[in-house]
């Protein structure tokens, strides 16, 4: 049984079809990378999985439970699925530690004191122990993005979604964020990434999907997809993406 399963997901914005019948299985502990040109539907697909967007047709299953039933309360689902955004989206009026503690405090009704040890642990694990009491604007882009990952992890999600999380970073900061992803994969987290980091996808992903115009054109193990792509469109994209 896959951890996360999309069946024929359709998403439209007005006349424009952004996801045109996407089906995808993600096994427990797997890292799946979505690649493809911007506007291909990667980000929208992730937002649909987290119920930030409603899908027009199809189903999304988490542990065999349909989470895409119209009218379903999205909040319990979102607690189980963490998401990290391209532009970090930290709350600028709170310190890093407060950013991380807000959701566990409000949603799980836990006190700051109760959370302190656990949060300190998380910050330490991701090399951020010195920055807990800094505000987002006192942190580098890489640090901010790592805090955003810690913030999502503090809710103890079962699946993590990453929406081009290195695209807004200076090149020298990309490495530290990718290291965090490797760490997470080793800890057995189930992850779906939309990414432009082809080198990383090839090295770390269990499965890679090439999306174009709202459809999965080709999917397979990283090695196979990068070395022997079958579809002409995939070949053309990879030729452009990997120079």
């Amino acid at each position: 049984m896959p951890k996360l399963s999309l069946k024929n997901v359709v998403k439209r914005f007005g006349e424009k079809t952004v996801c045109n019948g996407i089906s995808l299985d993600v096994e427990e502990g797997q890292m799946v990378c979505l690649i493809g040109a911007s506007g291909g539907g990667k980000s929208t697909l992730l937002r649909c999985i987290n119920l930030l967007e409603n899908i027009e047709d199809g189903e999304i299953f988490l542990d065999d439970t349909d989470i895409s039933i119209p009218g379903l309360d999205p909040q319990p689902v979102r607690r189980r699925i963490g998401m990290v955004f391209q532009s970090f989206n930290l709350f600028p009026h709170m310190t890093a530690a407060e950013n991380v503690m807000l959701a566990p405090r409000r949603v799980y009704k836990r006190s700051r004191n109760d959370l302190r040890a656990e949060i300190t642990d998380l910050f330490t694990r991701f090399g951020l122990a010195d920055h807990m009491n800094h505000y987002p604007d006192q942190l580098s882009g890489g640090q901010q993005q790592r805090v955003a990952i810690v913030r999502a992890l503090a809710m103890k999600p079962e699946v993590m979604l990453f929406d081009e999380i290195t695209s807004a970073l200076d090149p020298q900061l990309v490495g530290e964020v990718l290291d965090v992803l490797r760490l997470l994969k080793d800890s057995g987290m189930t992850m779906v990434l939309a990414t432009h980091e082809m080198g990383f996808a090839r090295e770390a992903a269990d499965k890679v999907c090439f999306l174009s115009n709202g459809e999965i054109i080709e999917e397979g193990p990283a090695k196979a997809l990068f070395e022997t792509p079958q579809q002409p469109e995939t070949q053309a994209f990879l030729a452009r993406a990997i120079k």
């Binding site: 937002r47 987290n50 930030l52 999205p74 909040q75 319990p76 979102r78 607690r79 963490g82 998401m83 955004f85 532009s87 989206n89 930290l90 709350f91 807000l102 959701a103 409000r106 949603v107 955003a148 913030r151 999502a152 809710m155």
Partner: peptide, 16 residues
Amino acid sequence: ASQRSAAQSLGLSDTD
């Protein structure tokens, strides 16, 4: 709007 998205993605209610 991305701030609202971020808050919602953490499972916070609309009021929170």
